[in-house]
Design a protein around this nucleic acid. Structure first.
Length: 320
DNA sequence: GCATGTCAAGTTGTG
DNA sequence: CACAACTTGACATGC
């Protein structure tokens, strides 16, 4: 059979940053913005947004050139956009419409090069917090992210289930209510990821299936926080939650090895042994969460090709 | 200049 | 009960 992808069905993705390629996203702190006169503050934020739109287009081009088929956009793409004081909407910034056009242009590059984009908001976004203001802020953040996701054509907003206070069942019920509060855009793009301490694949699957929220399967988290499902089974069940869309998964290796006291921190590279066999013939996107960034993605691609070649030689000769 | 500390945000688990 | 982990550049401060 013919397969256009270099690593079988697997599309490998890079997370947020480059180590070699000169692509850098800018950030901002509220403290600094607040020290400026309002007009200067907005000009400063606009310059960062403009720079980050261009950086995103560059990031996509570099990924494409390297054969990397997905890119996780830094959650600080628009720094402070949802901050209670410094917050802003793109259209209100000086030159805002040019910046918007710039993000749309980056999205067209991604579409043309077939680089899949996603967001992964950081730990402050807790849709199922017991504290109302936290949930409000989480909804606000995800709605804002959905807006920019729409501009650039990003296909997923991946979040963890959040707090486990009160026990997993109660926490999942709160999560369901939190999901209900998302705007249409965010609700259509949100996906849930199993984490390494609190919510396993089997904890999340029923909710994902019932609410039609895709499950991003993180194999490293699953191995840190197992639930009785095999990696192969979890892969298949999670993939089914994506329906017609290409399933998304995350992969990393433990920095200090699986035998260490704490296997959670990520290593520079993916240990080829950590690439699940069950993934080798699947059509799926795999974000490589490794400190060596694009070097690690390229090395993982090489490892996947070798594993596939070995499997083919060992199995049915030169079958595809 | 250069090294070092701080920065919007939450939750959990350790010391 | 306080604080580190999660994680990262940019800015401010102090030498």
């Amino acid at each position: 059979m013919t397969d256009e992808r270099p690593h079988g069905g697997i599309r490998l993705g890079l997370c947020c940053q480059f180590i070699d390629a000169p692509v850098r996203f800018r950030q901002a702190t509220h403290r600094h913005v607040a020290s400026l006169a309002p007009e200067q503050g907005r000009a400063y934020l606009a310059s960062i947004a403009r720079a980050n739109a261009i950086a995103l287009a560059h990031a996509v081009e570099v990924c494409s050139a390297l054969g990397i088929g997905a890119f996780r956009i830094p959650s600080q793409l628009l720094p402070l956009a949802t901050h209670p004081v410094s917050g802003y909407r793109l259209a209100e910034l000086p030159g805002g419409h040019v910046i918007i056009a710039s993000f749309q242009a980056a999205g067209r590059v991604a579409a043309a090069r077939d680089v899949r984009l996603s967001f992964h908001p950081d730990q402050f976004v807790v849709l199922n917090s017991e504290r109302e203001p936290v949930v409000t802020a989480a909804v606000r953040e995800l709605d804002a992210m959905a807006e920019i996701a729409e501009l650039v054509g990003a296909q997923a907003l991946t979040v963890h289930a959040g707090s486990a206070a009160g026990g997993v069942p109660a926490a999942l019920e709160r999560l369901e209510h939190g999901l209900d509060r998302l705007g249409r855009g965010a609700r259509a793009l949100v996906a849930l990821e199993n984490d390494d301490r609190l919510f396993s694949v089997s904890d999340l699957l029923p909710l994902c299936e019932r609410l039609r929220v895709p499950l991003v399967y993180d194999a490293h988290h699953h191995r840190c926080h197992p639930d009785g499902l095999s990696v192969a089974h979890a892969t298949a069940l999670a993939a089914a939650t994506w329906g017609d869309r290409e399933p998304w998964a995350h992969l990393s290796s433990p920095r200090d090895g699986w035998g260490s006291a704490n296997p959670r921190p990520h290593a520079d590279y993916i240990d080829p042994a950590d690439i699940p066999d069950a993934w080798l013939d699947r059509r799926m996107t795999v974000d490589v969460e490794a400190k060596a960034k694009e070097r690690a993605v390229l090395a993982t691609g090489q490892a996947v090709r070798e594993r596939r070649a070995a499997a083919a030689a060992c199995g049915r000769g030169a079958a595809g």
